[in-house]
Amino acid sequence: MKVTWTYDRGDHRDNHETDVTEPATLEAVLSEIHEAGEPVVVTIFSDLADDPDDLPSGLQVGLGHPTHAFAVHIADDGGYLHDRSVDAPTQGIRFDFGGVPTEYPVEHLCLNPETAIKVAGTFLATGGDPPHVPAASE
């Protein structure tokens, strides 16, 4: 699957793209992105959409904030994942999305970063099956 993310650097956009086939490799890449401490949206997808203005089906994860993250399944029946054990932050968090700082509301930020990374690894391992928040025993 293809993995892309972009940071706004003021005078330019810092674009990143890589191909990954192993869940452990994806989780390592996402961990590095998260540890950089710059909130950013990472898009994971297998096929480009027919229309370049449409998002391809896949998964987006918001990483880089110390305590909160998000994962959203990009599909006709997709949506944001929520972990009931994670309290939403007190205010929205701004993530770089394609080089554009974008505010994400508190209701979408109900994952911790470790869970978002695990969700992405599982998404790759299953070949793009609809993601879910893992049970405590997974």
Rank of each mutant, 00 (worst) to 15 (best):
H73R: 02
G92Q: 11
D87N: 15
D76T: 02
H73Y: 08
V133F: 08
I117M: 07
H108Y: 07
T122E: 08
T115G: 07
F95I: 08
D51F: 06
L81C: 07
G79P: 12
P56R: 04
A116C: 11
V61C: 05
R84S: 14
V86Y: 04
L48S: 11
P66R: 11
P113G: 09
T90H: 12
S46M: 14
A49P: 06
S46N: 15
V119G: 00
G121H: 02
P134K: 13
G64P: 01
S57T: 12
D76W: 04
D83S: 12
H65L: 03
D96Q: 12
G99H: 07
D51R: 11
V61M: 02
L111C: 09
I74M: 04
F123L: 05
F97L: 12
G99R: 07
L124H: 00
T90N: 09
T122Q: 07
P131W: 05
D50Q: 09
A49C: 05
G78R: 01
P131D: 08
S46P: 15
G128H: 05
F123D: 01
G78Q: 04
P66V: 08
G98L: 08
C110W: 04
I74L: 09
P130S: 03
D96K: 06
T67W: 09
L59T: 10
S85M: 14
V100W: 15
T90Q: 12
R84T: 14
R84I: 13
D51G: 11
F95Q: 00
I117H: 04
L81V: 05
C110D: 09
G79D: 13
Y104W: 11
G64I: 01
E107D: 15
H108W: 01
A71E: 05
H65V: 10
Y104H: 10
H132W: 03
D77V: 03
I93H: 01
T90W: 10
D77T: 15
I93C: 02
G92F: 05
D87Y: 09
P113R: 03
S85E: 15
K118C: 04
G127K: 12
R84V: 13
F123W: 07
S85I: 14
P56N: 05
V119R: 00
G98E: 07
A125Q: 07
P105N: 14
D53R: 06
D50E: 13
T90K: 11
H65D: 13
D77Y: 14
C110E: 14
G78W: 05
L55C: 10
H108N: 12
L55I: 08
G99A: 02
I74R: 00
D96T: 07
A69M: 08
